[in-house]
């Protein structure tokens, strides 16, 4: 059983809004492969992860924003975006993460 999907389904059944963040691409070296996901509820609960902990705080903020605006976004984190995002991966890889509000 997938704990992330399990949790999101529970939240939605309880009437809570939620956002899902999924790793869709990994370039060079990355800790977790495509398909790895993390979800956030409107109350700020978190399940799952998308890296070794390097980008989770930033993704959390993006997810909360997605819940608010309903706008999906494709995010890129990595060594080359270090300064732009203030977030980097110590492993030197680049990961692409899709963040969406769960309304389907």
């Amino acid at each position: 059983m997938n704990p992330v999907v399990d949790k999101v389904a529970n939240w939605r059944e309880e009437g809570k809004q939620a956002a899902l963040a999924t790793v869709v691409k990994v370039e060079r070296s990355g800790p977790l492969g495509p398909g790895t996901s993390m979800a956030v509820s409107e109350g700020g609960e978190v399940v799952g992860s998308v890296s070794g902990g390097c980008v989770e705080p930033a993704v959390f903020e993006e997810a909360m924003q997605a819940i608010e605006t309903g706008e999906p976004r494709l995010l890129t984190y990595g060594i080359s975006d270090d300064e732009a995002f203030g977030v980097g991966l110590t492993c030197g890889g680049i990961i692409h993460i899709f963040v969406e509000k769960v309304e389907w």
Partner: peptide
């Protein structure tokens, strides 16, 4: 179609 895809996804993973 509220919850349609999510609940099917959830059910498929369970089964």
């Amino acid at each position: 179609m509220v919850m349609g895809i999510l609940s099917r996804w959830h059910a498929a993973l369970k089964e």
